[in-house]
Design a protein around this nucleic acid. Structure first.
Lengths: 246, 246
DNA sequence: AGAGGCATTATTATCGATAATTTTATTTTT
DNA sequence: AAAAATAAAATTATCGATAATAATGCCTCT
């Protein structure tokens, strides 16, 4: 009968594998912003032809980390091309939409599971200072809401924007989680509780506002880290190495 | 020196031409939702090899009108895969972000141009009943704001969501513009004035709210048209044609 | 010496063919 | 006859090679 257009359970094709690895490389800054990537180079690195590499480039470009220019190839985007302001505003808005839709779409059973996860999250907040555990649990809550919002496009865009935010964060500083993560986690705890309660009460506007506030905490942490990064990198002035004469 | 990574001014490559034509075909419903498109078929239609067709498929998939499944090919998305609710909520949120950012990014000169366009828009509203002219002028204002918001990613996502909304609208009914367009245009006029005034006053929260209300008018028109569409298509039941016996 | 034109080189875009996979049709078994 | 196994056909994924295009270096001219 009709072909299976549903979820993809087969082994991933090479282009998808390469795309994933490229994304990781870019997000981890192993490939620097603005870099020009050649098809042959990547093809040689993975021992494949250039065709799957082309498709991988397209996929990474779709996410927004790469820019493909006709006849010129693929370039990692530059920092200022997606200003931090823009990314965080989009993140707030998209997470807000997901929470808003979750109010209407979530079953009562999902609501109970959400509150259960909230209790788990608060336990972790009280019990440990481990920032990464905080982030793990809170991310799980966010993704749970987004998935149960029954909004595949919103989820996709949300993942994209969150990835861009993570890339920016990694580029500017790798130490801000250790420095500010705990404080941010504590501030987030109360907001998460507010958000979850609004969702199970099916109050879309209030959930939207709480979602924005929650991302706002992350935004503030990032901006603070960015300031520190700038202050740290203000000194080294005499770093002009490249000699003019060959 | 450094390569030109700037805007693309060269002649478009074949894959982009094909992608554009495919998008038009899908949005205009010349290719129905859920349809399975073969590479060879499209390649033969445009007299090219399958390689640029593959790339075109990927580009259309990025916009969200096509879904590419490994080893199975490309399928036009189904109506319910992007529920109308989700699309309009995203549209509201993204246009809200664009307006919010425009408050901060717009120069005073841009603000004056915006108010000039608003006057033009109100003139058209008072003078003519031509719905398409209304839509043209109002769309110009929306795109002007989005462009001057200095937010390329928000603009891209906004275009995507607006395209999906247009596709849904075309699929469900082609007549709703004639039926409800004028009323919607009149209701929009006041909201556009509110929005523009908030933007030039650089009040991001208020501009966001006005933007949401503006898209909400379109949403209501669509939902009304959808109801009428359902009522019209409720009768024909005996349309099972495909015989089982060869 | 510097600017502009020309050939060279490097890279992407497209093509045609082959390999891998899925779907459909046929056969076999119960 | 129905279900499972198998074979055949259709389709996508990948490859290697060629065409088209852009960047680079060299040369000439002023």
């Amino acid at each position: 009968m009709a072909r299976n257009t549903g979820d993809d359970d087969s082994a991933p094709t090479q282009d998808r594998v390469i795309a994933r690895l490229l994304i990781d490389d870019i997000v981890a800054w192993r490939i620097p912003p603005g870099a020009w990537i050649r098809e042959r180079e990547i093809a040689a690195r993975f021992g494949v032809s250039h065709a799957p590499v082309r498709e991988a480039f397209r996929q990474v470009a779709n996410i927004g980390l790469l820019k493909v220019v006709p006849w010129r190839g693929a370039f990692v985007i530059d920092l200022d091309q997606h200003a931090a302001d823009e990314v965080y505003e989009l993140w707030k808005a998209l997470f807000g939409v997901a929470c808003r839709l979750a109010c209407a779409e979530m079953s009562d059973r999902d609501g109970r599971e959400l509150m259960h996860r909230l209790v788990e999250y608060k336990d972790v907040t009280l019990r440990t200072e481990n920032t990464f555990e905080h982030l793990n649990v809170s991310n799980r809550i966010g993704r749970f809401i987004a998935k149960r919002s029954n909004a595949p496009l919103a989820l996709e865009l949300l993942d994209r924007v969150a990835l861009l935010a993570r890339w920016q964060h990694n580029v500017y500083t790798n130490s801000y989680i250790e420095t500010h993560g705990n404080e941010a986690a504590r501030r987030s705890a109360a907001l998460y509780e507010t958000l979850c309660r609004h969702i199970v009460a099916r109050d879309g506007d209030a959930a939207d506002a709480a979602a924005r506030a929650l991302i706002g905490v992350t935004q503030e942490s990032f901006e603070q880290a960015l300031e520190e990064y700038k202050a740290r990198h203000a000194k080294p002035r005499a770093s002009r190495r490249r000699a003019k004469s060959a």
